[in-house]
Structures are given as C-alpha cells and as structure tokens.
Design a protein around this nucleic acid. Structure first.
Lengths: 156, 156
DNA sequence: ATAGATGCAAAGGATTTGCAACTTA
DNA sequence: TAAGTTGCAAATCCTTTGCATCTAT
C-alpha cells in the first residue's frame, strides 16, 4: 500500500464540483452538511487509493483532531446508503470460498450476497483496449455481475 | 441466502476425483491428510454456495461434532495458501471505498491489495454470450484484474 | 426549537493466536 | 517418534450501538 498523500489526478475545480454535488445530495436527502461530513467526503473524493475507514480517519484527523472513528464509520454508512459512495468490495463482511479453481465468473446478489457461478463461456472474453497500468503484471481477470437474484426479486 | 443442503451439480465421480487430487496436493506439500481436513475439503468441494467459514463449520459439525471453528479457519487458511482453495473476495479484510460513481474497473494487487482504477475504455465492454442465470436481474458489471503491482513486483 | 449528528465507551462479530494433548506419516 | 494438527480459550481487529451532548436547519 502506498504511503504519503494520496491525490486523485483531478483538478481542483472538479473537486469543487464534487463538493457542490455533495451539498446538493445532502440537501435532497435531508442530511445535515456538518463540518465532519464535508471533511470526510472531501478526503474520499480527493483520494485515489480506495481507502479503508481507518485510513479516512487518519486523513481527517489531520484537519479535525477531535473527530471520532465512530463518526467516520457512521458517515461512510450514511453516504453509502444515500448512494454518494460505493463499496469496492460488496462481500467484505466475511470470507467467501471457492474450491473451483477453473476460470469462471460470478453473479452476485446485491441484496442477499448470494454468489452464483457463471461459466467462463457465459461472457465474451475480457480484452484490453489500452495498456495496463505501468508496471502492473496482470495474472487473472474476474468479472462480477452485480444484480438481484431470483429469490430477492421475488420478495418484492 | 439459500438454506438447505447445497450440492454442486457435479457427479459423485468428479467429487471422488477432487478428493484424490486433494490427497495428492496434500502429499506434495507435506500436509497431513487428517479426517478433519478431508471433511472440510469435501464440504467445500461439494458446495456451490461459496460458503463462509461459519457455514463450512455448520456442515462439517454434522459429521464431526467435536470439530472446532478454529480448526476450520486454520484449515481454510492452509488450503488457500497451498492453492487448493480460492477466496471469492480478495479484499474482504476491510471495507474499501470509492467516491467515483462512474463506470470503471479495478486492477488489484494480490500481494498488497492496492487498488488502481481502470477507466471503462481500458477494456472491451463485457458482453453476454449465454443467458444470465434464471431470474437474475443484472444491474452492473465490474471487472477485477488481479495481478502484481509495480511496487510489489519491484520488491522481488 | 428540534431533529439529527457527534464523541465516547462498551458491545458484537469475524478471525487469529498460544498452548497442551493428540494424530499422521 | 517427531513434526504437524487439533480443540479450547483468550486475544485482536473491524464495525456497530447506546447514550448524553451538541449543532444545523
């Protein structure tokens, strides 16, 4: 994991625009725009390292030393539920295992987290159009199709 | 999440073959083939639900009531490190966040878990060849390119 | 003024670890 | 028999919760 200050390769105006969007979204959903929330959102929007809550806490504490880790967690959850933020890893609550080592993909239910196998042939092979990031050595490509499974769709 | 007995749509002979492979792999790596390990591996290889360690524990306890959850965790880790088993979610240790809601993909380092963005145009669009699983309503498709990042490749 | 947000501390779940007793090769 | 594995309990890490105090609307 890289250390140091993480900054998205995005100009200050774009960040300003995101902060504006942030304020609007909060207003639309009746979320108070507190100092803490603004700082937390800014830390997230200006980072390209896909940080953990702990890492966000570190960054934010530099600006608001009295902030608590609990507030960071609560804000992140609020933002995620409001659709302002996304989890990179929808299945992070617990380890999920696969004894099938052949190449295949997964269909993941965003509601119940059921995972169904997709045979490799179910999808067109993934191909590069551009070059991979400099120095990155690709080994394996997985596709996750996120959606709603039959059971969850049936439950309304 | 489905309840009940999960069974992969694989005939008994294939399972027998997997168990044989399992024994061979254990032998190759100097891993003892204990009753517990065999039962744990069988539970995993015969399931299509991508179970959690807790779920494996439930299934295995039906056969070996005295087994401990710790042993299940230790065996799973041993199997994963030996390459007999794969984690569906390599990033499950902690929540990772993304404020960029536009469609894009990720390059994930399997060593340090660094996540780099891949713009959507970096890859050919993912297309279905076959039909999605019955009743599954796809919403979004994510590609994860797993590999080794520049920093980790440099460290040997 | 009031609903909602914060900070703190305690609780809860997932996973790992230490160690003595037991198995496998 | 020696090295490795198990079961148990305690420890650790990540995340949520309860509650009194404070703040944005």
């Amino acid at each position: 994991m890289r250390k140091g200050r993480a900054s998205r390769a995005i100009p200050a105006e774009a960040l300003a625009e995101w902060m504006e969007t942030f304020r609007r979204h909060c207003a639309e959903r009746g979320l108070a725009v507190t100092h803490q929330r603004a700082v937390i959102y800014r830390a997230l929007a200006s980072s390209d390292e896909h940080p953990t809550p702990e890492r966000v806490y570190e960054q934010v504490r530099a600006e608001v030393p009295s902030i608590s880790l609990g507030t960071v967690y609560k804000s992140i959850r609020t933002f995620t539920e409001a659709g302002l933020l996304r989890e990179v890893n929808p299945l992070h609550e617990s380890l999920r295992l696969d004894a099938d080592l052949s190449n295949h993909h997964h269909a993941i239910c965003v509601r119940c987290h059921r995972i169904q196998d997709l045979p490799e042939e179910a999808l067109e092979p993934v191909r590069w159009r551009q070059r991979p990031p400099a120095g990155f050595r690709p080994e394996r490509t997985k596709v996750e199709v996120l959606g709603v499974c039959a059971a969850c769709a049936g439950n309304q």
